[in-house]
C-alpha cells in the first residue's frame, strides 16, 4: 500500500513536466508537417508505376520500381515530349494447388505516360533494369543543355 502522498511533488518535477509538454508539442507539430523530419514528401499521380525524375547537365533520369518484371516485359515508347511505359507484371505461382496465407503483391498490366520537361535526343535513349529498378537515361537535346557564356571585357 502506498504511503507517500502522490500529490506531494519533489523539487524539479514541475520543470521536467514543462519539458515533456514541450517535447509533445514539437512532436505534434512535426507530425502535422508530414511525418518524420527527413522523409521527403512525395506526390503521386495515381497511376502505376510511381516515377522519380531527376536531371543533371547532360541527361534526364527516369526511375521506377518494378520488382519482378523482366526487362523484356517493359515496353517503352517516346513520341514528341511524351514517354510511355507499358508492361505487364505476372506473378508466378509454383503450383495451382498451393494455398495462400498472404497475398499482397499485385499482378496485371500498366501503362503510364509522362510529359518530359525538356527536349531530348530520341536516338540516344537508354533503359536498364537492375534489381527491379528501371532506369531510363534520356540525353538532353543540344538546345536544352546548359551553356556557359563568356562575358567579353569591354
Amino acid at each position: 500500500m502506498a504511503i507517500l502522498k502522490w500529490t506531494h511533488r519533489p523539487f524539479g518535477v514541475e520543470l521536467a513536466d514543462d519539458f515533456i509538454r514541450l517535447q509533445r508539442e514539437m512532436h505534434r507539430l512535426l507530425s502535422a508537417a508530414g511525418g518524420r523530419p527527413g522523409v521527403n514528401l512525395v506526390r503521386t499521380s495515381g497511376v502505376y508505376p510511381a516515377l522519380n525524375l531527376s536531371e543533371d547537365a547532360e541527361n534526364l533520369y527516369l526511375r521506377a520500381e518494378l520488382p519482378g518484371i523482366e526487362p523484356e516485359q517493359i515496353d517503352l515508347s517516346i513520341e514528341g515530349d511524351s514517354l510511355t511505359i507499358r508492361g505487364q507484371r505476372t506473378i508466378s505461382e509454383a503450383d495451382k494447388k498451393v494455398n495462400y496465407h498472404r497475398r499482397e503483391r499485385e499482378s496485371g498490366y500498366f501503362r503510364r505516360v509522362l510529359t518530359l520537361p525538356s527536349p531530348i535526343d530520341h536516338t540516344k535513349v537508354a533503359a536498364a533494369a537492375k534489381n527491379g529498378v528501371l532506369t531510363i537515361t534520356l540525353p538532353k537535346a543540344e538546345a536544352a543543355k546548359p551553356r556557359q557564356l563568356k562575358v567579353a571585357a569591354a
Binding site: 521527403n40 506526390r43 531527376s54 543533371d56
Partner: peptide
Amino acid sequence: EGEHVLLKEYN
C-alpha cells in the same frame, strides 16, 4: 552524384 530531383513519387 549531382542529380537534381524534378519529380518524386516514391521514396
